[in-house]
Write a protein that binds this DNA or RNA. Structure first.
Lengths: 167, 167
DNA sequence: TTAAACTTTCAAAAAAAATTGAAAGTTTAA
DNA sequence: TTAAACTTTCAATTTTTTTTGAAAGTTTAA
């Protein structure tokens, strides 16, 4: 396999994976491309390499910057903007964990708390519903705490966590 | 808030969450409905409650059964089939972890291994690419190991893990 | 200033994904 | 058997999401 073929395969695979995890294909592809690029990459280059339109590139780069995993980088003497990806994987995981917690888990917890708080209905159905949603709340809240711990560890949390889990 | 309103809100929220995590809305809604239903639910009931077609119900129930988180349940004296969700949350998380590992992480690892194994290209670009994809491989492999440990613990892994993480 | 070089926005178009519903298939009880 | 009761399949349709590209906006250097 040649370098270019390998690079392409990586970008495609990462893109497909992204769409399974709730970010769109192009966004994941841009991220993949930046991850493996040694130097900052311009918007033109991104459009070129992924064969996408200017608008598409612009919107998805912004999306990645909103997630905090892609940054602008200015090359000295260059007018236009270049972009680089967060390459430290601990940092990357930390940021993704934090964002997902904020965007998805926290709102879900709020709803679980609300719906498990209904009162006055003593039907079997309602009692079961409350019990079940309360359990879910506790479970999701605990899982979220792990997410938060991960973001506190910061440096090589994954390795440290492995150590602990493996006893 | 009334029971029915609460139930509805829960089903909607869970459905929206599902679509962010790569399973489709209806599938997640059916799962939510089953999670909070005390008794086995028939396909008719599911169609009725979620206002979806027979085909849609059928395909998504099958999807949930493929994930191993919904089962058929026969009610004595009833001809048609009823369905129940895995209600034990540890078991649910375990199954989801296992399936995602199999469906998503393992194939991604395979590609990472492949593309990081290219040889003979000594350009800076290629060297950086190999280094980066190797790092990714190690990282993802470690994360996957945690997933697997989770499935081994089985009973209340989440609580145990919390204990360890919190020291 | 201004105009060139670049980026963002957003309505319209295209592509992808989900849904429908009727026909085909299956199971069961008599 | 067979026919009623039910489930699955899949081509066509609908809905949702993504992408395009041109116009509007912004920044910078002279």
């Amino acid at each position: 396999m040649q370098f270019n073929e390998a690079k392409n395969k990586f970008v495609q695979t990462w893109g497909a994976l992204g769409s399974q995890w709730g970010i769109n294909k192009t966004m994941a592809q841009i991220h993949a491309l930046l991850m493996v690029s040694k130097d900052p990459v311009s918007m033109e280059d991104i459009m070129q390499e992924l064969q996408i339109s200017r608008g598409n590139a612009s919107m998805n780069i912004r999306g990645l910057m909103d997630w905090g995993i892609v940054y602008k980088a200015n090359k000295p003497g260059e007018r236009r903007e270049f972009f680089i990806a967060e390459k430290d994987l601990d940092e990357l995981a930390t940021k993704i964990a934090k964002e997902r917690s904020k965007r998805e888990i926290k709102p879900a917890l709020k709803v679980l708390k609300e719906v498990s708080a209904i009162q006055g209905d003593t039907s079997e159905e309602a009692v079961h519903f409350v019990a079940q949603t309360k359990k879910l709340y506790d479970f999701v809240a605990k899982a979220d705490e792990i997410f938060e711990k991960v973001t506190e560890y910061k440096d090589n949390w994954l390795g440290k966590l492995m150590m602990k889990i493996l006893k």
